Simulated scan of single mutants.
Amino acid sequence: MANNKSSKKRILIAERNWLQNRTYKSAVRTLMKRCFTAVATYTQAPDEDTKTAVQSSLNAAFSKIDKAVKCGVIHRNTGANQKSRLSTAVKQAIEPIAGNA
């Protein structure tokens, strides 16, 4: 246990930051999963509604990733890698179908 006032305060601040970082990371993972499931749904039944769902989930995931990088929760290269994975999945789902139509 901490002995002086400043080290007790640092423990409280570290716990607060840990909780905030955990919520950001959880939200990023959740939004990424939603985007991947929307892409899978679009590949099964391509129509305008599912395409809109894919775009909105992609935008939400990009926004949350950018905010997490800005707050220092995740490294900028990690954020770029996650955004690249998402955009690649979306492009592979939308491009072949758009090319056939």
Rank of each mutant, 00 (worst) to 15 (best):
K51Q: 14
K64H: 04
R10I: 00
R29M: 05
V73A: 02
T30P: 00
K51L: 14
C71F: 05
A93V: 03
N100T: 13
G99D: 14
T88G: 08
Q20C: 08
T50L: 01
A80L: 06
N100D: 06
T50H: 03
L58E: 03
A27N: 09
K33S: 12
A93M: 02
V90I: 07
L12I: 03
F36M: 07
N100R: 12
S63D: 11
A89S: 15
R34W: 08
I74T: 03
T78Y: 11
S87T: 15
M32T: 00
Q92R: 14
T52Q: 08
D47F: 06
S56R: 11
R16E: 10
Q55K: 01
C71Y: 11
S7D: 08
R16V: 06
K8Q: 12
L31F: 07
Q20L: 15
I97N: 03
A101V: 11
D66F: 03
A98H: 14
V90Y: 00
K5R: 05
K67R: 14
S56C: 01
S84D: 10
F62C: 09
T43K: 12
R16K: 12
V73F: 01
E15D: 14
A53Y: 01
S84R: 03
Q82L: 10
Y42N: 02
R22D: 13
R34V: 12
R29D: 15
M1H: 11
T23H: 12
A60T: 06
F62L: 12
T52Y: 02
S57E: 13
T52K: 13
A45T: 10
Q44N: 09
K70F: 09
K91C: 00
S87F: 03
A68Y: 05
W18A: 11
L58C: 04
N81L: 13
A45C: 12
N3G: 06
I11M: 09
G79K: 05
N21W: 04
Q82S: 10
A101M: 03
E15V: 08
H75M: 05
